[in-house]
Amino acid sequence: MIPAAFEYARAGSVDEAISLLSEHGEDAKVLAGGHSLLPLMKLRLATPSALIDVGRLQELSYVRDAGDRIAIGALTRHRDLQVSDELARSAPIVSHVAGLVGDPQVRHRGTIGGSVAHGDPASDLPAVVLALDGELVIRGPAGERVVPASEFFHGFLETAIGPDELLVEIRLRKTQGGWSYQKFNRRAQDWATVGVAVARTDGTPAVALVNMGATPLRAAAVESALAAGASPAEAAESAAEGADPSSDIQASAEFRRHLARVLVRRGLEEAGV
């Protein structure tokens, strides 16, 4: 319940955050809303030597129209995504899914950047970022780089963000027409046992999976089956292809594969595919 001791530094700007990260080395962690990191620290499953608090960088909290994309500041809280007019217009799936993360209290503190940077395959928003062909804007000592979502998630709790880098913005494609998010969990406040995001950004449906492997995944086999003219029910049969779900207290890998097939079918149907 009591985290191990750490050094604390509050960043007044993005640049200061990056220099603080460089200064404190690899064992330092970025603290945004803290709702992924602090629970681990309380159980002492994470014991960072220093926390660089970026929580006050208001300049990273926004949702903006960026032409064919929508740009979201990394420190935008789930609650702000939930009630964003801009998202309601251009990517309502993001608002909807933000409203399913954790519980209201978590949504008042947790941020999209924190959720994506944590790299937990059981999180809801990373799969949506993947489905909307997200671009992750990362800033470091050498400047800014943009990583496509397809190359961002490296493994369980591992992402493309370097130890002295900060995720500053997430750019998503706008959605067109129907979409669906199927979250299957036992309790409302639980992580998804399996989740499925379905959205269309350029006419063809994109399908992404939550908690079906070490990272969020695109259901590539489903997408190509649909492109080849398969019905939603037919395409959904290949939902677990290429997935490598784990077995845990919530579900066996076998059941997760089954759920993925059912939820993909339902998602495609709800999205009007």
């Binding site: 319940m1 604390y8 509050r10 603290l31 803290g34 709702h35 602090l38 629970p39 309380k42 159980l43 926390l51 608090d53 929580g55 609650r79 954790g102 519980d103 209201p104 209290q105 978590v106 008042h108 503190r109 406040q189």
Partner: peptide, 27 residues
């Protein structure tokens, strides 16, 4: 609890509900 699940520690911070077990005093 110690996992941000139970909500017994819920307070209002700047008018919104938060779990005060998952916020540092310095935050």
């Amino acid at each position: 609890c110690d996992t941000t699940n139970c909500g017994a520690c819920t307070i209002l911070m700047d008018g919104e509900s938060v779990k005060s077990c998952t916020v540092l005093a310095v935050q």
